[in-house]
């Protein structure tokens, strides 16, 4: 489903250039469960943003479902993001003035889905994530775990093929972090491709395939048949 070839990305920080991604080759098939680990600044988030079409590489190529992404315009990439990619961020990135339901339906609102259809989809998801009682609550009325569940609901409301999570448990206590991981794994079991960046080695070990990064390169790519 995903193929990266010799992907490079550098940033200029002050006078220095930082090679955030250094000739990365990577293949991911549909339905895989990957964790990405490595020290801070090793390029994990940059890799995730590349996969999610939020960032454009300096060189190299990226095929997503057979389309060469680097050739697409920003508008086309926005459409691809909406249709195929769901993001979960460490900081949730919920819109404070909108309630849980409105946050979740945002991807549908953007493509102009009529309210009746949106309602149905959001209700189903709210039920599934045990958030029915919080549909009308604003983010500041929710706990961290609930917020992240709302964010996950928003990420999967369009039934994307690819779910990208950048340290989804970074702001959570271990208990609600555990809940969130379980939820993401359930979604993966249903067929969604899950790529998760994590600091926590124990969490990372749960994935069937584990990537280690350092200084923008893929250090190790472990895969097992376990689980």
């Amino acid at each position: 489903m995903i193929r990266l070839e010799q992907l490079c990305k550098h940033y200029r920080l002050g006078g220095e250039t930082v090679q955030a991604l250094d000739h990365v080759d990577l293949n991911i098939s549909a339905g895989e469960y990957l964790s990405v680990m490595g020290p801070s600044g090793s390029g994990k988030s940059t890799l995730l943003n590349m996969l999610g079409l939020l960032d454009t590489p300096d060189s190299g190529s990226y095929w997503l479902n057979g389309t060469e992404i680097t050739a697409l315009s920003e508008d086309a990439r926005a459409a691809e993001r909406n249709r195929h990619v769901g993001f979960v961020f460490q900081a949730y990135h919920l819109i404070d003035r909108l309630n849980a339901r409105e946050n979740i339906e945002l991807p549908l609102v953007l493509i102009g889905t009529p309210p009746a259809q949106r309602r149905e989809k959001v209700n189903a998801l709210l039920r599934r994530l045990g958030l029915e009682r919080h549909a009308e609550h604003r983010p500041n009325q929710l706990s961290g775990g609930q917020r992240q569940r709302v964010a996950i609901a928003r990420a999967v409301i369009r039934r994307p093929a690819l779910l990208l999570a950048d340290e989804p448990t970074g702001n959570l206590d271990s208990h609600s972090g555990q809940d969130v991981i379980t939820l993401l794994e359930e979604l993966n079991d249903e067929g969604i491709t899950l790529v998760m960046v994590t600091h926590d080695a124990r969490m990372g070990q749960r994935a069937r395939r584990r990537l280690w990064m350092q200084d923008g390169t893929l250090l190790r790519d472990e895969q097992d048949a376990r689980r």
Binding site: L54, E74, D75, H93, L106, P107, L110
Partner: peptide, 16 residues
Amino acid sequence: TPEIGLLKALGASERQ
């Protein structure tokens, strides 16, 4: 600004 980033991540085009 973060909201704009989010909207774009969710698939909002420049025009939107």
